[in-house]
């Protein structure tokens, strides 16, 4: 899907960064990085560096957007103008980020107990400081930690990851160069408690069997990703308990 000479993405069964087809990049999450927000998280997912922050629930404004039965979610995913290896981008939303904001919002509409806060809004910000493929998935994974840390009640802590295809091989967690030149890209967000699919996008070329194989990888990745999320949520409290047990 990218231009120019297509690089060889798989050499001897391994990917350019040495990963196996079903191997995730390293993922680190730190909760509580934005002091003013009610919940926040910083994620380093491979070379992606993303901050997610949550504000609210607060009175939804302007008034005509209020829903008397439940809270509304406003979500803003943006990429910083310096976030890509290529030229300086434009700051603020564009068509791509508007769509990603929409599908991210829909993930959290599923898991946040909106009926607890009628007339309110909950704001979720996802800011990509450095992008290296899979930013919407990493952003959702971080935002899930930020919402959980805020104490806003949720039915589950969702995670997201993408898969794709290079030649005949289905691969998990595409980085930028794989995203640019692979035969397909399919980001997915999952509610791990039920296995329900909350976000699903795809373009490229996949057979039904490829989707099946990729979804298996996505479900297997839950173990690693959800552990990183839970550890990030626990970490601030572990520091406090250390202080008191000394």
């Amino acid at each position: 899907m990218g231009g120019g000479e297509k690089p060889e993405l798989m050499i001897n069964g391994k990917r350019l960064d040495g990963r196996m087809p079903d191997q995730l990049r390293s993922i680190k999450i730190e909760s509580g990085v934005i002091k003013n927000a009610v919940g926040s998280a910083y994620i380093e997912w491979g070379n992606n560096k993303i901050i997610a922050a949550v504000y609210g629930p607060k009175e939804a404004l302007p008034k005509h957007v209020q829903d008397p039965e439940r809270a509304i979610i406003k979500c803003r995913y943006t990429m910083a103008p310096f976030s890509s290896l290529e030229e300086h981008g434009r700051s603020g939303p564009n068509r791509r980020s508007t769509e990603i904001s929409k599908v991210t919002k829909e993930v959290f509409e599923n898991v946040i107990m909106l009926e607890k806060f009628p007339g309110s809004e909950i704001d979720i910000f996802v800011e990509v400081l450095q992008g290296d493929g899979g930013t919407r998935a990493a952003g959702i994974t971080a935002a899930a930690v930020a919402v959980a840390a805020s104490g806003i009640p949720m039915t589950d802590i969702p995670y997201a990851v993408s898969f794709g295809k290079v030649g005949d091989t289905v691969i998990l967690d595409l980085n930028k160069i794989e995203d640019n030149y692979s035969d397909a890209d399919m980001p997915v967000a999952i509610s791990p408690r039920t296995g329900d699919i909350l976000l699903l996008q795809m373009d490229g070329t996949l057979s039904k069997d490829d989707v099946k194989a990729g979804m298996d990888m996505v479900y297997r990745a839950a173990e690693v990703i959800t552990k990183v999320q839970r550890d990030a949520l626990k970490a601030p409290y572990e520091k406090i308990s250390e202080r008191y047990t000394k």
């Binding site: 829909e106 509409e109 909350l198 699903l200 795809m202 373009d203 039904k208 989707v211």
Partner: peptide
């Protein structure tokens, strides 16, 4: 399959 898109709050 060439493209897919899931939308809205449901699953």
């Amino acid at each position: 399959i060439r493209a897919m898109q899931k939308g809205l709050h449901g699953s």
